[in-house]
Amino acid sequence: MTQESAARRFVVAAIALAAAAAALVGLTLLAGASPIDALHALAEGSVGSRAALGETLARATALVLTAIAASLAFRAGVLNIGLEGQFLAGAVAAAAVGPLLSGAPFVARAGLLVASALAGALWVLPAAYLEARRGVPEVLSTILLNLIAAAAVSGLVRGALQDPRGDYPQSRALPDAVRLAPLVSGSRATAAIVAAIALALLVTLVVEATPLGLKLRATGLAPAAARAIGLPGARLRLLAFSASGALAGLAGGLEVLAVTGRLYDPFSAGAGYTGIAAALLGGSHPLAAAASAMLFAALGAGSSAMQRDTGVPGALATIVPGVLVLTVLAARARLTQKRA
């Protein structure tokens, strides 16, 4: 997670873009579609119209937040692979408290989002406890907490949180007055994306330009050295871990508030995992991670249109981020070795 020189970043980005382009063209050909038509549909479906751009921005909210959540944790040396579970915990909290809230919409929304962020932070605690007290690597415990969260969502929408009207496995819908309305008509984008971008800027500021951020980064880069100069490593890690969980929980809450209006099963299309990919692509720099998340959101929105128009399966939007990250990891490792 070290910082890279500008020149090296440029080389890595160029290699990654070439690999992504090759993957895109190769997969469309494999699906028997014309790459030109498919890429045209992809572009049209992601940024080609007000509705398409709105779809991209609506998808970007969760991804930007999970991407900065991952960056924050990674920079402090916490391998939080559990963003998916923390995202789901936030969505569960939103679905649980949302229909109960009354009063001014502003107050209800604030209550819902605070509950979501808290739920996300709480979902981190078992992993943080096991890591600090029993030496269980957080990679493994957070992965299991993802499984448990997904199982809980599946059970809750058929049990305690099920909408009494109808037999569908889904929770009660939020009141229309509470849900976020589109910013402009004919678009799905809401104020949620503005909030996500503002948080991305805030996290960038904190991580890159404050004494606290410096301490977090020092703990991540050289734990032993950080301890030697008196930094409270365990507390800093816990802070980064729970802040990361809170951001992912907030992403889940905003997803319910701005996009879906309720919880259902399966709820997440892998926002937590794609957020990690965005963070890795951005070298764990929060702003670069947020930009990568926007790119993946555009890819997701565009690939739905592409599947509809050209028959190329939309799962392409999951493959390409994975290929990008693998390429970036390999290229960075190779360049580091060369220098050494």
Partner: peptide, 27 residues
């Protein structure tokens, strides 16, 4: 051989495999 961090490679691996099998299944 490439000496990239195995944990991070594995995370991306899951995306490629989940996407790749879903893609192929649909085809």
């Amino acid at each position: 051989a490439g000496r990239a961090d195995p944990i991070l490679v594995g995370t991306a691996w899951n995306l490629v495999a989940a996407g790749g099998t879903a893609f192929s299944y649909r085809l």
